[in-house]
């Protein structure tokens, strides 16, 4: 189990990386943390002509919050996000979700941009991006563009990223006062990919009713999905136990999971309902306790 031969490039600017990607015309792979790519190379499931290693490019490893947005550089390690007081204060959902990624040894090395670009439908960060309606910052030969989760995730392990484009940052909106969020997942073993994972974010009005809610699920389709039916049902209602249970049941009905080696579709449906109920209950409690913004 050794990687096949490839050319190796370690550019020190984004422009140089993009130029290299363009020259290989789709036959080069970007490597950052390598925690998903190296297994694929070792198994020889991936045989790129070249690797473009972006670890040596300065300025892609940062976490900053301004203008209601948390922006994280693509090469920022999961472990840095997990430990960041800025992330805990401005995007607690992300802080909660990132702890579920692999094991700490994987989080020491794996990157935010890598997880997003790899587009595993059960991975935590794409689910959080979907729930928070964040955006992916992409740099290509023509400059910088952004893509929402639904614009970015096309299907299994497939994104709208061009072969000469690079994910350079990921942005997560800060939710603000009166909001709450929660992340729930179940995996067979600690550190495994989730069978089903749910991210919930909601805002309560002064009367304690749901102003808006966003529910995103992973492991139930080819890309992370929003549960629009349940979101619509919850809007304007008080999040009591019976209402949340009804919303959870709606989620089970509106997703399309498949059976595989790890779980049957029926089990995934049931799991989605249970995890949704738990995530909603926690998010509502956190919102009622005063919301998320600014508590570091």
């Amino acid at each position: 189990m050794k990687p096949p031969p490839f050319s190796y490039h370690a550019p020190i600017t984004v422009a140089e990386a993009i130029d290299l990607l363009g020259r290989y015309d789709g036959d080069a792979k970007v490597v950052a943390g390598g925690q998903s790519l190296l297994p694929l190379l070792n198994f020889r499931l991936s045989r790129p002509a070249a690797l473009v290693d972006i670890n040596r490019i300065p300025g892609l490893d940062y976490i900053r919050a301004d203008g209601g947005m948390l922006e994280i550089g693509a090469v920022t390690r999961h472990r840095a996000v997990e430990r960041s007081a800025v992330v805990a204060a401005h995007c607690p959902l992300l802080a909660e979700a990132v702890r579920h990624i692999g094991h700490f040894q994987i989080r020491n090395r794996g990157t935010i941009g890598g997880s997003i670009a790899h587009a595993d439908p059960a991975a935590e960060l794409p689910i959080v991006l979907t729930a928070l309606e964040g955006e992916v910052v992409i740099t290509g030969p023509g400059g910088v563009r952004t893509a929402t989760a639904s614009e970015f995730f096309i299907t299994l392990f497939t994104t709208s990223l061009g072969s000469d484009e690079l994910v350079t940052a990921v942005r997560f909106p800060t939710l603000g006062p009166g909001t709450g969020s929660a992340f729930q997942e179940l995996a067979r073993r600690s550190g495994d990919f989730a069978l089903v994972a749910v991210a919930a974010a909601l805002a309560l009005d002064e009367a304690g009713a749901v102003r808006w809610v966003r529910l995103a699920l992973g492991g139930v389709d080819l890309v992370p999905v929003r549960a629009a039916g349940a979101e619509e049902f919850l809007a304007g209602k008080r999040p009591d136990a019976a209402t949340l249970a009804e919303a959870a049941a709606l989620v089970a009905g509106e997703i399309n999971p498949e059976s595989d080696l790890h779980a049957t579709a029926e089990y995934r449906r049931q799991l989605a309902a249970v995890l949704t109920g738990e995530a909603l209950e926690t998010a509502a409690r956190r919102a009622a306790e005063g919301g998320e913004c600014g508590h570091a």
Binding site: P3, Y8, G34, L38, P39, Q105, R109
Partner: peptide, 11 residues
């Protein structure tokens, strides 16, 4: 702590 099988020596 990192997995040395998931890194290249050049890195």
């Amino acid at each position: 702590a990192v997995r040395s099988c998931l890194m290249l020596a050049v890195q």
